[in-house]
Structure formats: C-alpha cells, structure tokens
C-alpha cells in the first residue's frame, strides 16, 4: 500500500512498538514521524500534512486518540473534514492488564458524535488489513478501531468493505444478532447455540459503525422478532444505540444491547474481563431469550 500511495505517511506518539507502526518505520523511515508523547500535537500535525496533500495515518491508543487529543480530533481533523486516518489501537476492555485508564470503552461514542467521521471496526486481523486499505483510498477522516490481542480469523467476514454497509453473514428468521469488532466471534458462537435450541438467527457484522447501514437494520427489524447487538464498548453511544435509534425511528422492535455497562473496567486478562463484563456468547443467548419471552 505504501508503494501504491507515495504520499501516505505514518505518525506515532511513542507507542510505535505497541501499535506496530514500527513495521512501517523499518521499511519507510523517511515517511514515518515519531511525535513523542504528544498526541495532541500529532493530530494537528497530521492535519497540516493533510492540508498539504499527504495522507497521514496517525496512530496511538484509543484512549489518547479520543480523550487526550479529543479537541484536536474534533477541531483540527473532523470539522475541516481533512484526509487523516486515525489508527486507534488497544481499544475496548480486552486491552487488559493496563486497567481502566487505558481501556477505551467510549471511543465509538465520542467519534460517532463528531460530524464527518467514518468509523471502521474490524473483526479480525484480515479485516483489519481490509479496513486499513479501504481508509487509505477513502477521502475524509476515518477512525480505525483496533484491539490489542489476536482473535480467531473468520473468513466469513472477509467480503469487501464499503462505507455504510453491513455484512450479512447468515440468514435467519427468529432473531437478529448484530456485532461489530471482535464480538463477531461471540455472535457466531451464540448463533450456533441458539440453533441447537431451534432458534434461527440472522447474523450481521458491522465493520462500519458510522455511517450505519440503516437498510439492513430496518429489514432485520421487519423480518425477525428483535435485535441483539454486541460490541466491546460501552452500551452508551456505540453500535447498540445506533441500531436502537434507527429502529425506533423507522421500524420499532425490541433491541437488547450487549456491551460494557456504564462502568469503568479494571486490570485482568482479556478473556477474564470478557467473562466478568458480560461479553460472551452466553450473554448474547440470554438476551435473545429476554426478547423471545416478551
């Protein structure tokens, strides 16, 4: 991609080994700029590079990208709609051991509320490469939300990325399960569990959280008995509320949101935290029964 796009440059803020932008640096040292521990400056510098025709990818942890440098994200990048790509890593509670200070559970909520932003949240490593490539060729600000750990590769989700388009993974008649990011794994497990109980699930994956694919959501609301959303993010302001907002306006139905309740996280291993904070397939299945028993 760097060969195809000679004006692509990468910036990092002293976390290049963690975000792995160091791999780009190793090959293109003249197109890599380590800004030091200066997320705010980095975002405005990226805006300046974009104004002069470069395509900057600015990478740091999600908490810094949306909160520490929130003003610069809003006023330097989103407001003038500059062609800057934010590579936000270590998002969600699976960031793990560093604890709540480093777990971005509200970054989708923040970026969703910024006009001009496009939000892409991949479900696995292959899709992470897909959304990155897509962002490079897409004109405008893009927030790329990555997790820290490796998750199972799911070939089912590797159809092409399109802005405002969800991916229908499985047809179903009784209930609809909509995931974004790594929760696609849990949703697919949940769909299998439900099938053993005779429940047919429609499964939709949403790598693009904003703009949301409203058509696929409205159709699901019309054709199944309800929707369960699943995201590794606060239930406030994320995919769940985007879906709920859409159906309440166009096709009211039951919506259950699986995500992190309105609490800060804590230190722990990713898996332990997913168990404790209710991000597992069994939590999705329970939510399905809450809807079907209404």
């Amino acid at each position: 991609m760097a060969e195809e796009i000679p004006n692509l440059v990468v910036l990092d803020a002293d976390v290049a080994k963690a975000t792995q932008t160091c791999d780009f640096q190793a090959v293109y040292p003249d197109r890599f700029f380590n800004c030091g521990v200066q997320e705010q400056n980095m975002f405005s510098v990226a805006a300046g590079l974009a104004l002069e025709g470069f395509i900057p990818f600015a990478s740091t942890f999600g908490v810094f990208a949306t909160c520490r440098a929130g003003d610069q994200l809003r006023n330097s990048i989103a407001y003038p709609k500059l062609n800057v790509k934010i590579g936000a890593t270590h998002c969600g509670i699976t960031t793990g051991g560093d604890g709540a200070s480093h777990q971005a559970n509200e970054d989708i909520a923040i970026t969703r509320s910024l006009p001009n932003m496009t939000i892409l949240v991949p479900g696995d490593y292959e899709e992470a490469k897909q959304v990155t490539r897509f962002a490079a060729f897409y004109k405008g600000p893009v927030y790329l939300r990555f997790g820290r750990d490796a998750y199972p590769i799911i070939p089912l989700i590797h159809s092409p990325i399109a802005v405002g388009k969800g991916k229908l993974l499985q047809e179903g008649l009784d209930i609809t399960l909509i995931s974004t990011g790594i929760m696609v794994s849990e949703v697919l497990i949940a769909a299998e569990l439900l099938l053993t109980k005779g429940i047919s699930s429609r499964v939709i994956h949403m790598p693009c959280v904003k703009p949301l694919d409203q058509d696929i959501v409205i159709k699901a609301a019309r054709e199944t008995r309800g929707i369960v959303t699943a995201e590794e993010h606060s239930i406030i302001g994320g995919l769940g509320e985007a879906v709920a907002g859409t159906v309440s306006q166009f096709q009211p139905t039951w919506v259950e949101r699986i995500g992190i309740a309105d609490v800060f996280g804590e230190s722990g291993q990713a898996g332990e935290l997913m168990d404790k904070y209710g991000l597992r397939a069994k939590n999705i299945v329970d939510a399905v029964f809450r809807i079907l028993e209404k």
Partner: peptide, 11 residues
C-alpha cells in the same frame, strides 16, 4: 501552530 508544523514538514 501545531498544524503549521505539519504543513512545514510537508513542505
């Protein structure tokens, strides 16, 4: 001033 740094780097 920060944005100007990015622009100046670009130049």
């Amino acid at each position: 001033i920060s944005t100007a740094m990015g622009m100046a780097l670009a130049a």
